[in-house]
Design a protein around this nucleic acid. Structure first.
Length: 106
DNA sequence: GTTGTGACACATT
DNA sequence: AAATGTGCCACAA
């Protein structure tokens, strides 16, 4: 049994992001197995082989802000999608204090 | 096989 | 406090 490729792990973690929540690249990388894959995560989402199964719009950088190169169909599109999920987006920023995906939330 | 690039994060200045 | 530089890993040429 061969281990999943790095990308598959990343995609698997992104798919695990619940609706109405956002995760940072570092968070996804850490959950994928290595906190240093932050850049790789960005690249993995860049190729985004399955935009329908991999909601890359739920992945934001450490600032809770969307990348300038995001615009996979219009940054405005991203805002609409997140708001549709229940996440408030200001400009291109989301309140990580409220919407950052956490395994333990009270 | 080596070099350069990249949708990031962290440390230091 | 903000800005800059460095480190990390994977992929393309």
């Amino acid at each position: 049994m061969r281990s999943k490729n790095t990308y598959e792990k990343i995609y698997d973690v992104v798919r695990e992001i619940p609706q109405g929540r956002v995760a940072t690249y570092g968070q996804v990388a850490a959950l994928a197995g290595n906190p240093r894959w932050a850049r790789v995560v960005g690249y993995a989402l860049h190729v985004n082989p399955d935009p329908e199964g991999i909601p890359c719009y739920r992945v934001v950088n450490r600032e809770g802000r969307l990348s300038d190169a995001f615009a996979f169909g219009g940054v405005n599109r991203q805002k609409l999608l997140l708001e549709a999920e229940g996440v408030e987006v200001e400009g291109n920023c989301v309140k990580l204090d409220k919407y950052q995906w956490k395994k333990f939330v009270f």
